[in-house]
């Protein structure tokens, strides 16, 4: 059948490509085809793809910008966090030092107070001891006077109380 066609079309066993009777037909349909494809592409397909690509490019650019922004924000937040941490550390150190100073001051005050009390007590005790010692001396002098008077009376001599007292005082003092 194909052979018949070939013979009928005049192409013979040669190349159907060189059968010039079919050229007008091919050229006509080719031009139509190209015009249709050109219309389809230039009116619909290419603008659409161009817009899609532009949109995608825009989206990507926006996303990258947003990511950059978020990254910067994160860095800022980290810096703020670090700063807060450092501040807190400094504050803690300051509070610690203050507290230490206060406590030290309190301790110092308590020690001073205790020292003062001790000193006061000591003074008081010394006064008491002195009093007791004075009392003892007076008692010794009294006893000595009485004893001297008694000795003088026993010896039958008039008791001159004043002279005895002076003599005793002089002795005790010495």
């Amino acid at each position: 059948m194909a052979t018949e066609t070939t013979e009928a079309a005049g192409a013979a066993p040669g190349m159907p490509q060189l059968d010039f009777t079919t050229f007008p037909n091919q050229i006509f349909w080719l031009v139509i085809t190209l015009v249709v494809i050109y219309m389809v592409l230039s009116r619909v397909a290419l603008p659409r793809i161009a817009s899609v690509l532009a949109e995608r490019q825009g989206t990507i650019t926006n996303d990258i910008a947003a990511a950059e922004e978020l990254k910067q924000k994160a860095a800022e937040a980290e810096a703020a966090y670090d700063k807060a941490l450092a501040d807190a550390r400094a504050e803690a150190g300051r509070i610690g030092a203050e507290t230490k100073a206060e406590v030290q001051a309190e301790i110092d005050a308590a020690i001073r107070k205790a020292d003062a009390e001790i000193a006061a007590r000591t003074a008081e005790s010394e006064v008491k001891i002195a009093e007791i010692r004075d009392g003892a001396t007076a008692a010794v002098r009294e006893v000595a006077k009485d004893a001297a008077e008694a000795v003088v009376a026993a010896m039958g001599v008039d008791v001159d109380k004043a002279a005895i007292a002076a003599a005793v005082d002089a002795r005790v003092k010495g």
Partner: peptide
């Protein structure tokens, strides 16, 4: 018949019909 595949023939009607300018062919 390696070249038979390249033959331009009318899509409708007889295979042997002449191929005019506006004939709908396999091309």
């Amino acid at each position: 018949h390696p070249m038979d595949q390249f033959i331009i023939k009318p899509l409708f009607g007889d295979a042997g019909d002449t191929v005019g300018m506006f004939t709908i062919t396999n091309a």
